[in-house]
Amino acid sequence: MNPDLKRRLLLGAAPALLATALPVRAETSTAPLRLILPVSAGSAVDTIMRATQGALSKALGGQPVVIDNLPGAGGITGTSALVKAAPDGLTLGVLSNNHVVHPSVYKKLPYDTYEDITPIAIGGSSPMVLVVHPKVPARNVKELAALLKARPDGYNYGSAGNGTIVHLAGELVVEEMGASARHIPYKGTGPQIADLLGGQVEMGVSALVVVQPHLRSGALRAIGVMSRERIAAAPDLPTLAEQGLPGAEAEGWFAIVGPARLPAAEVRRLHAAFSAAFNAPEVKEAMLRQGNQIRMSSPEEAGRFMRSEGARFGRLVKKIGLQLD
């Protein structure tokens, strides 16, 4: 072959050869990170991640972060989308207690709760609060328990859906009081709080960050927080334990996960990015203001914790006889 022609052919082929040699992620490095939240907008997890969104993008070197709310079926809808995503580090999910409760509540799920995800970290938790509509003439546990006992099934409590942590926390409170109330499930936190504000349901449990503005305005009244101790964001709010309900303890934790078979290198990279984001001063301030506690676990600790929580809530589900199709 003519030497000049050979040289021109090789030079012409160089860009194509280079392109095929580059890793796939280099072509998608500007693609956004999709964070699937299987909860409605305005929920605790949603509020936390939106406060962290900008810092996370910065920690990822400017990669855009898109929050995708996919509520429905207590979180099953969004989680189903997550487990079907490619394990390329471009789609993650932020799950809550609900994820590990579902195996005990539902006869069948469209995915395996533990095998179809890759834990990255337990990010932290949000304190939960028992609240009532102002028309309810009760300001503490003793008064509320007396009302419920005087009118069995005369009061309703709303939740974000059957089998959710909010539902189970409400059941826990009523059981600890030795009373009864009718459970009204909604399709997410937003509808639950809307009807609570409107007085269609008299009481409910929710994350502090969700109801805090309504407590300040007087649209809702807090009976107590379900944490072990009082919280810095609302120091005047007593715990349910100190009001005589030591067993009524619950918090809403959240886990950052990927689809199954997410490479170990991606897990490490993403764990580092989330850790940096939660350590950003503006995010720390937002979390303190909202009353959230950030405690980033290792991926291994996250996996163990989720299984232990699944066992703990499974015992509660069995005790109250909850079973859904």
Rank of each mutant, 00 (worst) to 15 (best):
A26C: 08
G321H: 08
N292K: 05
A311H: 05
H167N: 14
T189M: 06
A234K: 02
L262C: 09
G291A: 10
A16G: 10
P110Y: 04
G54I: 02
L288M: 10
P23Y: 02
E285T: 11
A264Q: 05
G89H: 06
V65I: 01
E176Q: 15
P137D: 07
L5C: 13
S206H: 10
A207Q: 08
R289L: 04
A248L: 06
A26H: 03
R25Q: 12
R261M: 10
Q323W: 03
A160C: 03
A13V: 00
L270C: 12
Y111W: 06
V66L: 13
R312Y: 13
L262Q: 04
D325F: 01
T20R: 07
G54E: 14
E229R: 14
G158V: 07
V211R: 08
L70D: 10
Q293S: 13
L324P: 11
L56G: 13
R50W: 04
K58R: 11
D88V: 12
P119Y: 13
I256D: 13
P191S: 10
P134R: 15
V105K: 02
G123C: 12
V101M: 12
A51T: 01
D153P: 01
S297R: 07
L92D: 08
D88C: 01
R7L: 00
L270A: 11
G158K: 14
L18R: 00
T28A: 01
V317Y: 09
P110T: 10
Y106L: 08
S298F: 14
Q192D: 03
I256Q: 12
E175N: 15
L147R: 03
K318I: 03
P134E: 13
G62V: 01
L322R: 07
R216V: 00
R261P: 06
D112S: 14
A233H: 09
H102E: 15
G89P: 10
Q293A: 12
G190V: 12
Y157W: 15
M306G: 05
M287N: 01
H99M: 08
S104Y: 07
T52Q: 14
D4A: 10
V317T: 06
M49F: 14
A138T: 00
A169N: 07
A81F: 02
P263W: 07
S104E: 11
K284V: 11
H214T: 00
L70T: 12
R312L: 11
G61Q: 09
P152W: 12
G54W: 08
G74T: 09
L237S: 00
A273Y: 07
L130E: 03
G188K: 05
A277M: 02
V100T: 15
A19M: 14
A169P: 05
A277Y: 03
R8C: 12
R289E: 02
